[in-house]
Design a binder for these strands. Structure first.
Length: 311
DNA sequence: CGGCAAATAT
DNA sequence: TATATTTGCC
């Protein structure tokens, strides 16, 4: 019995399709042209773009020019981030400026993404943890205030829920016992202690492991995806992981996560900013998270997130 | 802009 | 169906 159990898993891994197997498939399904135009989002394909982006950004390194680290806690940060350097791509097929009236696909909050979110909130502090600030701090391309806002809402509920349970005590002791379906996503990311009680700051307002990275990769719009798609093709191994992020992440109570992919929708807008004053070309460094062992994470290396974006 | 409730998609 | 995410309103 035990042998079977142990073997089934081992076999499972071996039974997995080899990169070569998947590669052709991707090529067949996602052609360069398609990748360029890729706004394809029927249901489970948007992940392709996401994974692709992740893969592409995967090439980021750990630079540390000690740039503008974590913002102290300004009354209102007017730090407008804009990584807009290269303007158009002007690649052959011209006339591509989507993202204008297109609707974005559902944003998939992956553990990594959420981690970033939590980190941002932690750095900002509950008081400054407002959607806009968080969004800016996250510097995630494609992320909108609405996305953060809605997620923040849920996040708060999750925290509140946790507080209620923590008081009751029930069973077992350890601190981790709340695993509601919704909690799973949140549970994947460590929650700063002081988050639960705003009236008791430990000592520092922030202690985030934020790792500012040089803006080494600032793709833009569809070009971004093109690169991403290419990366995806180059890394078929990832394909096996991103092909299903619609429902939820399959992670055991204390297993490990493996879905460092963010759903990257089409570009948003780069020409006109609503209230954004002349954004300076500040190569705002994106923040990458390091390998962190969340509760339950054991020796599982997480992929780094990626780039920053502009607004 | 920020928060909350409802609607919708998966 | 339930959950996640989006959208609208205040």
């Amino acid at each position: 019995m035990r042998e079977d159990d142990s073997n089934w898993f081992a076999r499972w891994e071996e039974e997995l399709p080899s990169p070569d197997e998947l590669m052709p498939i991707t090529q067949t399904l996602i052609t360069p042209d398609l990748a360029l135009a890729f706004d394809i989002r029927n249901s489970t394909n948007s992940s392709a773009a996401a994974a692709a982006v992740a893969a592409a950004s995967n090439s980021l390194h750990q630079n540390q020019p000690v740039p503008p680290p974590p913002p102290p806690l300004p009354t209102h940060n007017s730090s407008e981030f804009a990584a807009d350097s290269s303007a158009e791509l002007g690649s052959g097929t011209g006339g591509d400026e989507p993202a204008r009236t297109l609707k974005r696909p559902r944003l998939v909050w992956t553990p990594q993404l959420h981690k970033r979110f939590v980190d941002a909130v932690a750095h900002l502090g509950i008081k400054n943890a407002v959607p806009k600030t968080i969004m800016q701090l996250m510097s995630v391309d494609g992320l909108t205030r609405e996305n953060v806002a809605s997620h923040l809402q849920k996040y708060r509920l999750y925290l509140k829920r946790m507080q209620g349970l923590s008081s009751g005590g029930g069973g077992g002791g350890g601190g981790v016992g709340v695993d509601a379906a919704t909690d799973h996503l949140f549970a994947s990311s460590p929650v700063p202690a002081h988050f639960l009680h705003p009236g008791r700051p430990p000592n520092s307002d922030h202690f985030l492991p934020f790792v500012p990275v040089s803006a080494l990769q600032h793709h833009h719009h569809q070009q971004q995806m093109a690169v991403a798609a290419a990366a995806a093709v180059a890394h078929p191994q990832l394909q096996g992981q991103y092909h299903r992020q619609m429902g939820h992440f399959g992670s055991p109570p204390n297993g490990q996560f493996d879905h460092p992919f963010l759903a990257r929708p089409a570009a948003q807008q780069q020409a006109v900013h609503r209230m954004g004053p002349p954004v300076h070309n500040a190569p705002v460094p994106g923040y990458v998270e390091d390998l962190e062992s969340a509760n339950g994470n054991a020796g599982r290396k997480v992929l780094t997130l990626f780039p920053t974006g502009d607004d």
